[in-house]
Amino acid sequence: MPLLSTRIGILGGTFDPIHIGHLAVARQFDQCLGFTKLVLLPAGQPWQKSNVSAARHRLAMTCLAAVLVLPTTRVIVSTDEIYHPGPSYTTQTLSKWRKYYGTSASLTLLIGADQLVRLHTWKNWWRLFELAHIGIAARPSFDLSHADTMVLDEIEHRSGSADMLRSTTHGHVLLDTTLSIDISSTDVRHSLRERTGSRFQEVSNVPDTICRYIYQHHLYRP
């Protein structure tokens, strides 16, 4: 099948804060699928999370990360959900992107194993496959049985190769188990809260520019 000329990767998340694990997922799938554009999509008001940092800080950190992700691929930061009034839902956002790029573009939503096990709780989750492919970054030790049975059935039914995702517009799943990075924003925030003193200190798994932003704006501190 011929390669589609427009291949968009979409990496969404609360990004509170964005860290090297997020960047690793983007790089891995870009190498595999050869995106013509990568979209970083910080959530505005995540309906399944509470007590998240202000949207303006998470957006700023995402913008700082954008220049670090893929030096050979165009990376943009979308504010679709940041400025969306009320809770934001991935299916609604993907629907807008599909209308914008039309029916001939390959769209791939990138998610991690932690999102996979909660996928069945997403609003209208089954519609994701009508709008995009899904690229799943699961650690080598990840047990797929932790995911919901209905989700697993869809993954098995829609499993496809990298060539299929590059050559079709939506509906397939690519599971990658080669990444060995296991980092969570929760752990990063916990590490930051344990720091004492006001002087800048590097934080493991957080790019230096983002770490400096965190310290400058006194985020995640008691």
Rank of each mutant, 00 (worst) to 15 (best):
F29K: 06
Q115K: 01
F142S: 02
S78Q: 04
A24V: 01
R127W: 04
W97N: 02
D16W: 01
Q92C: 03
S78M: 05
L41K: 11
G102R: 09
G44P: 07
F129N: 07
H133E: 03
L64W: 12
R27L: 12
S53G: 04
T62I: 11
Q31I: 03
P71I: 07
D143A: 15
V151Q: 02
A24K: 07
L110W: 11
R56K: 13
Y89W: 14
I18V: 15
T79H: 03
D114M: 05
V75D: 08
K37C: 06
T36M: 05
Y100C: 15
A137H: 05
A105N: 13
C63E: 15
L110A: 02
E130S: 14
T108R: 14
M61P: 02
L59C: 01
L152Y: 03
A132Q: 04
W125A: 07
L119G: 06
P42R: 10
Q115D: 06
P42E: 13
H57Y: 05
Y100N: 11
Y100D: 13
A147R: 06
R127K: 11
R98D: 08
T93Q: 13
Y83P: 02
L94R: 10
S141Y: 03
H22D: 09
D148S: 10
F29H: 12
F29A: 05
R56E: 13
V151A: 03
R58D: 08
L131E: 13
I136E: 07
T36P: 14
Y83Q: 15
W126G: 00
Q45V: 06
D80T: 09
M61L: 01
F15P: 08
D16K: 02
D30M: 12
Y100P: 03
L109Y: 08
V39L: 13
V151H: 01
I111D: 00
S78R: 02
H146F: 01
L23M: 07
Y100A: 15
P71D: 08
L152C: 00
Y100F: 15
S50W: 07
A138P: 10
E130Q: 14
A54F: 08
P17V: 04
L70M: 03
L38R: 04
A54D: 15
I20R: 04
S78I: 00
A65P: 14
A54T: 07
A138E: 09
Q115E: 10
A66I: 04
E81K: 13
L144A: 06
A137P: 05
Q31V: 10
L70E: 11
L116T: 10
R74T: 08
L128W: 08
S141G: 01
P85W: 00
C32Q: 13
A138H: 00
R27E: 07
S141T: 09
W47K: 00
F15M: 02
P42Q: 09
Q48W: 15
A65I: 03
R56G: 01
L116P: 00
R139W: 10
L23S: 12
R56I: 14
G86I: 14
L110E: 10
L70C: 12
A26W: 12
S50R: 15
T103F: 00
F29M: 06
R118S: 15
L94E: 13
S50Y: 06
T36D: 07
D143I: 07
